[in-house]
Design a protein around this nucleic acid. Structure first.
Lengths: 228, 228
DNA sequence: CGACGCCTTGATAAATGTCAAACGTCGTGG
DNA sequence: CCACGACGTTTGACATTTATCAAGGCGTCG
């Protein structure tokens, strides 16, 4: 079902560190002026952080795409989530991450030191509330994802396409950053099932597949009807 | 896969309302002295709140058990989570619940008015932080649940048993409050698969089943080996 | 051009769902 | 006390979905 995962990651150590010294006393939030450092570049497949490492930073995708994963005891991999430009990941209340994060393609990412953020949140209710909202939003996404995992292969793939389309573009063409393998591990299916299902959607003219990563949503309504 | 869900819920309207007037100015947290009102009693299968209702309260189980669910467009039901005594549910950042909650068996539950809690959190960093921690903990549980949903039926059932054992009792005997149907909808399987898998575990002497809801964990190590 | 990584396709097997029937338990009322 | 009915559970036969294994194709980059 899930792919066996052999570890051969190139680990990029972030070079310019975001500031942790004296705090800006302005009410600082993610959206507005910020605690964010300069973007750091990660190569395709570079590990951003590893499972059960100390949760030192929060991350915001500037460009590119990121996947977070967990590895099961038998080596299978589950992709927990994808993060696209503008989205924040690495949000943990615990001391350690409970999943790893990797760049799907060359990406630039801003880091926020967790300790800094928590210190600000402790005396700024607005930041604290935003932190909470981000976590709750993540929770919602996770719930939606869990809902997806109990459905048929067709439903999962259709929902995935619509979700990506919504998050990546306003146009008809979706340029996926991730491989079939990533999609399979995200949806709890095999690459063969992903491929066949996409092929079937193309046969039924719901989508077109000019290249494997480029998908044209020809009939969103039909795709949506496969969903709850 | 999931059960078709016909709605015939007895709706219990909570009679004694938790206080919302002048606030206790003590730093108030869930664990310690509290914003909690008197426990309210809900009958078996009573709806505590419905999907997409305004999120007016948070809830803490005193006695009994609660399930939260989402209904898919085609009528299938997914049980998102079970809540047992001492656990908090109804935690949403959004204005509305995105799932419903029902009493699995006769239960007594304490309510906390959301607006009250938010007001306290706004000027008490400790409460705000606890609110965040609770949400993050919920997120973790959800992630674990999602991981479960991509595994084999055996793994799901074994993991469910171990989880329930840990949360319900320190002893060998687990008295489940929920039906096979609830379990099936929680694990994304059918009641038949649940029943057969339990039977198989019993055949292999990993568990014993004196009654359908009473399960003796005879060999936790073997059950654990099915998990990641 | 050749090699590698990624993707597709086909044949077959395994896991799980579906449908149907029977069983057990528990509470109710005769 | 027993009979009955409702509900939840178990079991069996069979269908369907999806995984697995194997082979080949396409594209890209050296």
């Amino acid at each position: 079902m899930l792919t066996r995962y052999s570890v051969s990651r190139l680990r990029t150590v972030p070079s310019p560190r975001p500031p942790d010294g004296p705090l800006p006393e302005i009410p600082a939030v993610f959206g507005s002026v910020d605690l964010l450092g300069l973007p750091i570049h990660y190569q395709r497949n570079a590990e951003i952080f590893g499972e059960s490492e100390p949760a030192e930073f929060l991350y915001k995708v500037v460009e590119g795409a990121v996947r977070t994963c967990r590895i099961l005891a038998d080596g299978r991999r589950q992709v927990c989530a994808f993060y696209l430009p503008g989205e924040v990941f690495g949000l943990e209340a615990a001391k350690r991450y409970h999943h790893s994060a990797e760049a799907i393609c060359d990406s630039s990412i801003q880091l926020i030191r967790r300790s800094t953020l928590l210190r600000v949140a402790a005396h700024d209710a607005h930041v604290a509330s935003e932190l909470w909202a981000l976590t709750a939003h993540e929770l919602e996404r996770m719930q939606d994802h869990a809902l997806l995992l109990v459905r048929s292969a067709q439903e999962r793939v259709a929902c995935f396409l619509l979700e990506m389309a919504e998050r990546l573009t306003s146009a008809e063409t979706v340029e996926l950053p991730m491989t079939r393998n990533d999609i399979a591990d995200y949806l709890g299916l095999t690459i063969e099932t992903i491929s066949r299902t996409l092929g079937q959607f193309a046969d039924e003219a719901m989508i077109a597949l000019p290249r494997s990563r480029r998908i044209l949503l020809r009939n969103r309504k039909a795709l949506r009807q496969l969903n709850a």
